[in-house]
Nucleic acid binder design. Sequence first.
RNA 1: GGCGCCAUACCCAAGUGGCUAAGGGAGCGGUCUGCAAAACCGCGAUCACCGGUUCGAUUCCGGUUGGCGCCUCCA
Length: 465
Amino acid sequence: MTSLKIYNSMSRKEEEFKPREPNKVSIYACGLTAQGPPHIGHIRGAIVFDIIRRWFIELGYDVEMVQNFTDIDDKIIAKADTEGLSSEDVAKKYSTAYLTVLDKLNILPIHWCRVTEEMDSIIEMVATLIDKGHAYAVDGDVYFKVSSFKDYGKLSGRNIEDVRSGYRIEVDERKQNAEDFALWKSAKPGEPSWASPWGPGRPGWHIECSAMSLKYLGKDFDIHAGGNDLIFPHHENEIAQSEAYLDSEFAKYWVHWGSVTLGKEKMSKSLGNFFTAEEILAEFDPDVLRMFLISTDYRSPVDFSRERLAQTSTAVARIKNAYTRVKSVIGDAQSDPDTAYWGKFSDAMNYDFNTSAAIGVMFEVVSEINKSIDDTSADNAVTASLCAALVKMADTLGFMNLFSDTVKIDNDLSADLIQAAIRWRQIARETKNWAISDAIRDDLKALNISLQDGANGTTWKIETQ
RNA sequence: GGCGCCAUACCCAAGUGGCUAAGGGAGCGGUCUGCAAAACCGCGAUCACCGGUUCGAUUCCGGUUGGCGCCUCCA
């Protein structure tokens, strides 16, 4: 088997994946701040790490997958004011919305953690950083002293001077240097707060991910993932505080996915140019959304539009059509997946999860299947192995509905009745009784069953949507 | 200004120095067909531009042009 290559943002190269422990992989993916409905950009992240994870499972790894919710921060407090809810309820509302969407999208279960439930480990980490001289407390706030960490900027390619000169917002004068960032923020009157050695307050944004990933995955865990907009400052700061705390390496591989754009401009909550996952899923099948988002390399930006999603629907229908047609030829014949195509698919996935190429292979299989349907001399055993390869590929990529409708009815009396109707219609056709022939087809159509006449006989499929 | 990423056909998009530059959508022509739908066959790319390295560059290096992201909160 060829080895798995992963693009590591730290080295900016594809590297051979070597797990910390044999056959085990630990992944931490930065989650979201639960302050608004999840949009397509969030969904892309979820689907990217879901596919990475499914491929590790396919390769035989035990996968430990942790993701966080930021359930307390400035924006949540602000949102609580405008919505007339508590911060806690705001966080609960939007984290639940995200979980609901993940469920619809067939995302594998995740080990969730939440900032408000991890205060002890966060406070311990901040205290240790102060003890080690990497942080200082001022008036109830705690800041990380960036100049105390030699490697600062190694992920994003910046140095401290770059960061200082690029600093555009007003600098809090209590900070020793502009680039220092908050580990702990004191609470203003009326704000939710937690007790700490520096007074009541809440964690800064970056410390939570360090504390939670280290708590659940341990030092030197395998993969730290997130959107590429998190590289600076979030991941850079995580590295600084974590490696200063550990005196050793934090995570081994850094995986960053690209943004979703709208008219080439990044979709984001602050710009307001986003589609929510909910509204898109009301219009399109989850498999169509998944297919759309993974037909571009995960590291590149992907431009979102309903037109492109509609094109993807057509492409998805091609796969469904091939499957339903071939099923009515080969029936339930079981077979091992075709090794040549599966090998090609694996090679694609093993090279930094090249889903675009992998999907290309799926369509090559679809094409082969379609040819075999019209070819009366085709070997059904070969066709069945192509079909098995297609199903395995779709499962591996996390598609859920491509084949389910047919499978459901295949095991039912209905399938036999449909076949009977097709025979009656064939008799009508042979006697050129088009009225009866079309009536049968129309009646089945009313039941969402469509018929297709081919050189090799008539096939049927369930119409979805 | 600093730090990065990107440029492949009408649109989307893969491409790990050498083999016909994958695949999807749209289009055009044909086959099959009572009609319909689906499918099949055929048609299409001097790989943004200019240099360099190499026997050989879409691929590596430098520059130019154009686009995008991060440097405030972002997935």
